[in-house]
Design a protein around this nucleic acid. Sequence first.
DNA 1: GCCGTTTGAGCAATCGATTGCATATTAAAA
DNA 2: TTTTAATATGCAATCGATTGCTCAAACGGC
Lengths: 344, 344
Amino acid sequence: MKNGKATIHDIAEKLQVTASTVSRALNNNPRISDATKKKVLKAAKELNYQPNNIASALRSGKSRLIGVVVPTANRNFFSSVIRGIEEIANSFNYKVVISQSYDDYEKEMQTIEALLNVQVDGVIASIGKTTENVDHFKKILKKGIPLVLFDRVTNELDVSQVVIDDYFGAFQATEHLIKEGCKRIVHFTSSQNINIYKERKRGYEDALLKHGIAVDPELIRFSKLQLEDGRATMQEVIDEKTSFDAVFSASDYSIMGAMQVLKENGYKLPQDVKLVGFGDEPFTSFTEPTLTTVNQKSIPMGNITAETFFEILNQKDQTNIISKKTILKPELIIRNSSLNQENI
Amino acid sequence: MKNGKATIHDIAEKLQVTASTVSRALNNNPRISDATKKKVLKAAKELNYQPNNIASALRSGKSRLIGVVVPTANRNFFSSVIRGIEEIANSFNYKVVISQSYDDYEKEMQTIEALLNVQVDGVIASIGKTTENVDHFKKILKKGIPLVLFDRVTNELDVSQVVIDDYFGAFQATEHLIKEGCKRIVHFTSSQNINIYKERKRGYEDALLKHGIAVDPELIRFSKLQLEDGRATMQEVIDEKTSFDAVFSASDYSIMGAMQVLKENGYKLPQDVKLVGFGDEPFTSFTEPTLTTVNQKSIPMGNITAETFFEILNQKDQTNIISKKTILKPELIIRNSSLNQENI
DNA sequence: GCCGTTTGAGCAATCGATTGCATATTAAAA
DNA sequence: TTTTAATATGCAATCGATTGCTCAAACGGC
């Protein structure tokens, strides 16, 4: 017992039994008598025994580590999902290794490689914005370990997914603006290769159509949806003298940029232009006016994602896995940026 | 080579050498000839060999994992520090396991326990707000692995630390307000057990004294510095009819709360009250008026923390480690919330 | 009291890579 | 040519826990 670290051998020696017996006792194996188990547990406590996860991982092939890949942890949505995942993972005595892809395809590949290298037992991921080829995810499946995707998913992979109903969220948001009297609603969106933006755009369009408003392609603007993109796009729209009375953005950051530019150009909010974002980032309640946005149910999403993960992990018959798609309902959070004066 | 996973033994067999030779070749051991190394590398590539980190970790005692404990990844400051740490760690071929303590003492202990359990090679941490006893950190040291603290540190542990000069940041911020004509500056702070809040308060007080303004204990308010705390405290101050012309908060979140309450109470900003926060959270440039705040140099802090970590890790003589304290200069970011009208 | 069954525990191999020591080969020095 | 030294590789133990198989003791049935 050098270095203060007790091993099962130390326990075995102390008790004059073998390491196998100790191992079985600690794992509550039925082939060990209760009396022995009790003795082992007692000795383990006395020696301050801490199991060596690495040894166990090597032998059993399980590292009790889940790799989580997100574009960035520095977004309320993602960090909340991570929190939701952690809650469940910890209850299964698993640890979470968080990796950020920074929305960069190269980095995403590297990070997955690295996760596989540390021998994670599976991966939970949300795909980066610039990722179009998903071969690196196939590597995970090839290893025969679970992969669950959330939020930014792809249909090219036959894996379980957890998403919100982006279509519904966008539909609701747009309909809300229409009910507040808007008719010329600008929509900020991003690459249509990404499911969430595609769905949100579809929801936006269908809401317009439902209320007899034609979809004007002039009003649909593509960008990366960062704050700066929101600013630039908004300025463009203003400069072009395109008529509009609202903006619905697929991201809170770009609607924030739009808000800044609108104010700088002398627009009164929400009287002249009504705004709705997507994501319910904390800052949306700090702005003036406060921003209407769509809450993505991040913690439940994390919980469900992790639960799905463990379902697959614990499945007896690994050959017969059914991939399932869970869809959560988002919630429209109505604040001042989208309301008529009399309603505020 | 079952299951598609090649081991050094497969390479060895293919090349008719022993596993030891392969291992040494892969690790670029000088005792192996260049010719053999080349052959091994080639065979490794052909067999798509991926080293088994777990086996390596078991034998060498190194997991190539750093545990990072932060109160929450969902704060720009912490996620940026993490990013800074990752940059360096990856360059050393190390992975980072991020753990959130959620500013909860119990959770912090558990999380450290869990990290030690997965056999991290060392820990980088920022201490939670509710933590007063640091015995769980001593466990890390007892294991003989490096521990480096950043930002929220303690002097009870003789370990390397990386912090910003909180005193200087606060001093600058306060002096700036004074130069803008403020004389009754409220200060929001938190538990004085936490180094950063203590230092910031000291900077605030010294700046006042330097300019011949007495420190009025009435103006110093203690809370947890969340948005809600900022709101509540500000309302209190207003209700008490305490006279004040500025607020300097040790946190951006609470200054945000103060801003909201001030506006609700009809104060004109920054004319009636000037505001300065601390942290340079992204939302501080979204508010109206935009918030003056102190930037904490998060990415460099992460870089330096990780570099310090590896210095210790790679130290030959582990018995003779010198703990060092690195202090970074923060930067005052002046925005509209603290400026006189004519300066905006 | 004999034999088969159940129960409890030990033996030894194994997971894959690393490493101290031994050995074989070759080159250089004497 | 012999000795010495350097170079290149092999052997086998090891890290700590797990697990299939074996075996001894205890027990019960007839």
